[in-house]
Every structure is written in C-alpha cells, then in structure tokens.
Design a protein around this nucleic acid. Structure first.
Lengths: 158, 158
DNA sequence: TTCCTATCATTGTTTCTGTCAACTATTGTG
DNA sequence: CACAATAGTTGACAGAAACAATGATAGGAA
C-alpha cells in the first residue's frame, strides 16, 4: 500500500490546479460522509437547489445545476425513490414536471448540511475563522464574474 | 439553443461546490487554450511537475500528481511522442525509468504558462490584484493543511 | 380546425475515462 | 538458489457523460 499523497502546493501553482485539489479533497470526504445517510454529493446538490427553487421544472433545475437534462432525470429518479422529492405535472403545461421537495427531503437537507459543514471544517480547518470567511467571499465573487459556462454535463455537487 | 448557464452563487453555498464550479470554468477554458499548442491540462500538469522534479522516476511522479501509475504511463507516452520528455533507465535500478524534460519541453512549458495565465486572468478577472493574491494565498494555505488524499486516480491538471 | 414547428422529458447508444488485476522484468534477501 | 518485493506496463472491466432519437404536449399559422 502506497503512502498517502501529500498535498504538495509547490507544484500546484495555478489557480485551476488549486481549485481541483481542494475540490477533490472536499468531494471525497463529502461522499464518505453523505453515504451514511444514503446521499451522494450530486443528490445533495440537487436537494440543495430544490430547497431554494422548490417547484421548478426539470429544465430549470438542470440549467441551474449546469448538468444535462438526461442526467437530471436519473438524479430526480433517485430522490423520488428515496422519498425525498416528487414530480407533479405543471398545470398549464403537461409536458413539464414540477419537482417539489418532501418534508422528509427537508429533514434530509438538514442532516446532510451538518455532514457537509463538518467536512468543510476538516478541509478548511487550517484557516482561522476570519480567513475562512474571507476565502468564501473571494470564491463567490470570483464565480460571479467568471465567464458563464456552456449548457453542461454532470455536476459533482460538493 | 440553450442560453449559457449563469454562475449562480446563491445555490452554491458550500466551499466544495464553489471549488468545483471554479475548477470547471478554469478547466474548460484551459483545455481550449492549450489545445492550440497540442497540450492538454493533464499533459501540462505533468510538464509542470517535470519542470520542478526533473529526473524523477514514474512512481514519484504519479505520487506527486496523485494519479494512478498506469495513468502516468499513458501521460508520459504522450509527452514522449510529442518530443517533450524522455525516459531513461535509472543507472542503479534497471526497473525504474527516470523521466526528463527536453529543451523543447521547456519551451512548451513557457508557451503553456502564458496560455494558462491568460485563462486565469479571465476566470479571476473580477477580482482586483490584491484580492487575487489574497485568494491564491488562502487556497495554498488551505491545501497545505487539508487532509492528505489516498493514492489517487487521474488528475485533471488545471 | 389542421398542420407544422418548438419544447419538455425520457430512453438508449456510443464513447470515453478511470480502476483494477494480472504480467514482465529487475532487485534484494534469506 | 528460491522467494518476496518493487517498477512499470498491459488489457479488461465498469461507470459516467455526451449525444441522438423518440413520444407527448404546446403554440402559432394557414
């Protein structure tokens, strides 16, 4: 068994590489933590979007998350099977399905958020509270001004 | 034709999601930019490592980059085919291959770095110089203290 | 109305990538 | 010498993602 890889910053000098390594560290741990409550990073990401965009149709959801509509189908299937979300026909347009979050889905969000915040504590643990807040602020500002993405593939939520 | 997806920060409230979205924005643009000089993000990442770890054997390189040894084989093959790197047997241990960067490889690094820095200007363009420096500093510090990764899969360099 | 086109969701297909196990060659060790 | 360990390589396999095709519905034009 090989020794764990060190997070060598010296060779990861570009922002993109830093983003990737931090995302990877966060993603792995998040996947492990969410697994205990039957979620995946992608499912949690969708639940999170539903928490703010409840009742949106699938097209809007896939656009919001930046994933392919066909990937959204599978994701919603998973949530529906788990009883965390439901489809219902949009009254005025029977082509579209509005996706709503169930009460159990809301409870799952709360549990999942605690998991994810704990992971975030681990990943960003080396930073003090002020630095951490500053980092989050800068990340959000950078993202706001970053060039928009093409209508995209599958998102790995966290 | 679907409209470009907005980088909606409101629903991406966790650090992992922000890392992912910023990495994705950076990665796509970097791939496009590097394509014009026959490179990929992964090849560039390896070239970059070779610039600092010239003469290292493949095992060390794959550990440094956090990718599988078998993935490293293919990556080096690509660089060798392009004349940017070379394998040579380690004198004392004929099992191991030392990987060295060629002069052309060094020139490729320079060209590639200009491409990548230009992309970084686009992605982080919304931040002022001071904020940008601050962000990079915080990212490096976070990565240094983040929990080490298991001996991992393929890295998407930038 | 009827026809044509566009939209929403879904399915299936194809392609690609990473993961893993096996294999060769070489080294070190009892 | 026999045996285990290491470096690299190969090929098979599984999973994911992108894309095209389909069915159902809506809206507009003749």
């Amino acid at each position: 068994m090989a020794a764990p890889v060190s997070n060598d910053v010296e060779v990861a000098e570009f922002a993109g590489q830093l983003f990737f390594r931090l995302w990877r560290a966060s993603h792995t741990r998040t996947a492990e933590a969410l697994d205990s409550i039957g979620l995946t990073p992608a499912r949690f990401a969708l639940l999170n979007v539903l928490g703010a965009r409840d009742g949106a149709i699938q097209q809007q959801l896939s656009a919001d998350m930046g994933i392919d509509p066909s990937a959204m189908v599978k994701l919603i299937d998973e949530l529906e099977t788990a009883g965390l979300a439901e489809r219902r026909r949009r009254p005025n347009d029977r082509r579209a399905w509005e996706v709503t979050i169930t009460p159990e889905g809301r409870r799952a969000i709360e549990r999942a958020r605690r998991c994810v915040m704990q992971v975030e504590d681990e990943v960003l643990g080396g930073l003090g509270a002020a630095d951490r807040h500053q980092l989050l602020t800068l990340l959000r500002r950078a993202l706001e001004s970053a060039p928009p993405q093409p209508p995209w593939r599958t998102e790995e939520g966290d």
